[in-house]
């Protein structure tokens, strides 16, 4: 008896790399945007915060001469969006993917571990685009008139912030239980939204707390974005703080992330 020939005359082949990663990014983006709780965190709460901060006098102490409340509010809301998206959103998604064995299954497909992470990063960027467009549109409706150069410069600042928060989100998702990731990301989101230097500038906080917050990735991102829109360029310090957080978080995630 002879053994049958292998199943197909032509050997099964993977889709090209770019198509695999794009497919995963599309899939992840849809998964995040279709989840009600995620939508609340990603879009609804930030947009509500923008309206609230523009219509109330909460930010008045932080508005420099010649600027409007909305000019201070929009950068803070964008920083919060990065936190919702890269840290909470993808952290929770990845934590549950790990818990249900999705990470293990997908790493056995042609997507692989690298393609899976690349897909998640692209999904974060895609969601960030949606967030930026909606926040900017609402901001424009509320009287926000940013410099074109500032808008352009805000993109690398946002991406650096996203890199730092993605590293932290993946680190959490890859090391603790999914329920713990969910609880911690939500708690951290509330804390950082309130006193993390995102919506409210660090220098409006009590002096000691404010200085500490400047060293958090949330405070650094908030400061860098406000300086980008209000003065045209971010100062070196917050950008440096973000870069250090990004490098440290990714190094730790690479070192300790567990796929199962």
């Amino acid at each position: 008896m002879t053994a049958p020939a292998p199943p197909t005359a032509t050997r099964p082949q993977p889709a090209p790399l770019a198509r695999r990663v794009a497919a995963q990014a599309r899939y992840e983006t849809r998964a995040v945007l279709r989840n009600g709780e995620q939508l609340l965190l990603l879009l609804i709460l930030p947009l509500m915060a923008l309206v609230a901060l523009t219509l109330t006098d909460l930010l008045d102490a932080a508005v420099p001469a010649g600027a409007a409340r909305v000019d201070v509010a929009v950068p803070g809301v964008l920083a919060l969006c990065v936190l919702s998206n890269a840290f909470s959103g993808q952290g929770i998604q990845t934590g549950f993917d790990r818990r249900y064995g999705v990470l293990r299954f997908l790493s056995t497909t042609p997507l692989g571990r690298g393609g899976l992470i690349a897909g998640k990063l692209l999904a974060i960027v895609a969601v960030l685009v949606v967030q930026y467009v909606l926040v900017a549109a609402l901001g424009l409706a509320l009287g926000w008139r940013p410099d074109a150069a500032a808008v352009l410069l805000s993109v690398p600042v946002l991406l650096l912030g996203a890199a730092a928060f993605t590293g932290l989100g993946l680190l959490l998702a890859g090391t603790v239980r999914a329920e713990a990731t969910l609880a911690v990301t939500n708690l951290v989101w509330v804390l950082l939204a309130a006193v993390g230097g995102t919506l409210f500038p660090a220098r409006t906080l009590p002096a000691g707390l404010g200085r500490a917050v400047e060293l958090l990735p949330s405070g650094a991102l908030g400061t860098a974005l406000r300086e980008t829109f209000l003065t045209g360029t971010p100062a070196l310090l917050p950008v440096l703080v973000l870069a250090v957080w990004a490098a440290a978080a990714w190094a730790a995630a690479v070192r300790w992330f567990r796929w199962s």
Binding site: T10, P12, Q13, P14, A15, P16, R19, R20, A23, Q24, Y27, T109, P110, L111
Partner: peptide
């Protein structure tokens, strides 16, 4: 989605 990861 899983099918889209393969060429054919």
């Amino acid at each position: 989605h899983v099918a889209s990861l393969y060429r054919s």
